[in-house]
Simulated assay, not measured.
Amino acid sequence: MQNFKYLKSLFTVFNIILCCNGSLKESYSTLQFGYRLYQRMIESYLNYSILDCVEECLRTTRCQSVNYYKGANFCENNFESNTTEPEMYREDSGWIYTDIKNWDKGLTGSCSEQSCSINEKCIHQSLGNSKCVLSDCGIPTNMRNTTWNVKDGDGIGIYKEMHIKCHESYEQRGSGRLLCLEKGTWKSDLVCKGDSMVNTGNR
């Protein structure tokens, strides 16, 4: 049984080499230098290569695009793209942007055949196995609040924070600070007039 798992792992690596080497050059050619998608982040990572950043996004079901700052090897995975949020896509020197649709999911190895839920990501395990774990708390949605005023660096990933506020037609109480808990739910003190608590359902 152990030998079978080892051979399966080798086969997976072999498939990655076959399927991705030819397409990597084409994928790299789609990188958009000097651009960044703002304030639509799931999670950020330090000391990542651009390829690590892309692979992280490919394993995260909700992820649609990547921002990468080469000078600091800093990576941001986004829950939107420049086509779904064009007004948040801006010129910014030093940054590199790419849509995840430009990359082959074969880069993820054992996760390439894994189907995780929208708020999950696939993580590698030993001997070519993988499993799905929670990735985020979902996008805060409610007719009384807006995500248009989130701060730079805010994210919806586990242990990340996001700052939102009530629409102008509602009276706001609380800071509007949301904290994504380990169990995948938001903790918040935001109350819009007539609302007992902000609705932060997963989307």
Results as ranks from 00 to 15, higher is better:
residue 139 I to Q: 03
residue 201 G to V: 04
residue 48 Y to C: 02
residue 75 C to P: 06
residue 13 V to N: 10
residue 41 M to C: 07
residue 115 S to F: 08
residue 173 R to N: 11
residue 52 D to W: 05
residue 88 M to E: 15
residue 118 I to A: 01
residue 40 R to W: 02
residue 156 I to F: 10
residue 168 E to S: 14
residue 89 Y to T: 07
residue 177 R to W: 05
residue 131 K to M: 13
residue 55 E to N: 06
residue 58 L to C: 00
residue 83 T to I: 15
residue 152 D to S: 07
residue 3 N to R: 14
residue 94 G to I: 14
residue 183 K to G: 00
residue 96 I to Y: 07
residue 196 S to H: 11
residue 30 T to F: 15
residue 77 N to V: 13
residue 23 S to V: 11
residue 38 Y to E: 12
residue 7 L to E: 12
residue 67 N to K: 07
residue 171 E to W: 13
residue 155 G to P: 03
residue 72 A to M: 14
residue 29 S to W: 14
residue 99 D to V: 07
residue 21 N to M: 13
residue 6 Y to V: 12
residue 34 G to Y: 10
residue 63 C to V: 01
residue 182 E to N: 01
residue 131 K to P: 06
residue 142 N to M: 06
residue 166 C to R: 09
residue 154 D to G: 03
residue 162 M to R: 12
residue 162 M to S: 10
residue 74 F to S: 04
residue 171 E to A: 11
residue 1 M to Q: 13
residue 169 S to I: 12
residue 173 R to S: 12
residue 108 T to Q: 08
residue 202 N to S: 03
residue 92 D to Y: 14
residue 105 K to T: 14
residue 119 N to V: 00
residue 142 N to Q: 12
residue 170 Y to R: 10
residue 28 Y to F: 15
residue 128 G to W: 12
residue 59 R to C: 01
residue 181 L to A: 01
residue 152 D to G: 04
residue 85 E to F: 14
residue 179 L to W: 09
residue 108 T to Y: 06
residue 108 T to N: 08
residue 58 L to G: 00
residue 29 S to V: 07
residue 187 K to W: 03
residue 191 V to K: 05
residue 186 W to M: 00
residue 20 C to I: 10
residue 23 S to A: 08
residue 106 G to I: 08
residue 62 R to M: 03
residue 107 L to H: 06
residue 200 T to S: 04
residue 141 T to G: 02
residue 70 K to H: 08
residue 94 G to S: 12
residue 91 E to K: 15
residue 186 W to F: 00
residue 127 L to Q: 11
residue 161 E to F: 14
residue 24 L to H: 08
residue 122 C to W: 03
residue 41 M to I: 10
residue 133 V to H: 04
residue 160 K to E: 15
residue 59 R to M: 03
residue 143 M to D: 10
residue 120 E to W: 00
residue 158 I to Y: 07
residue 103 W to A: 04
residue 131 K to F: 10
residue 198 V to P: 04
residue 143 M to L: 10
residue 129 N to G: 11
residue 84 T to E: 06
residue 199 N to L: 04
residue 103 W to G: 04
residue 140 P to D: 02
residue 197 M to N: 10
residue 27 S to M: 12
residue 73 N to A: 15
residue 51 L to Y: 03
residue 125 Q to K: 15
residue 42 I to M: 01
residue 198 V to Q: 07
residue 110 S to N: 12
residue 68 Y to V: 02
residue 190 L to Y: 00
residue 178 L to A: 02
residue 17 I to K: 13
residue 105 K to D: 13
residue 44 S to K: 08
residue 51 L to D: 04
residue 121 K to I: 00
residue 145 N to M: 14
residue 104 D to E: 15
residue 113 E to N: 13
residue 12 T to M: 15
residue 93 S to N: 13
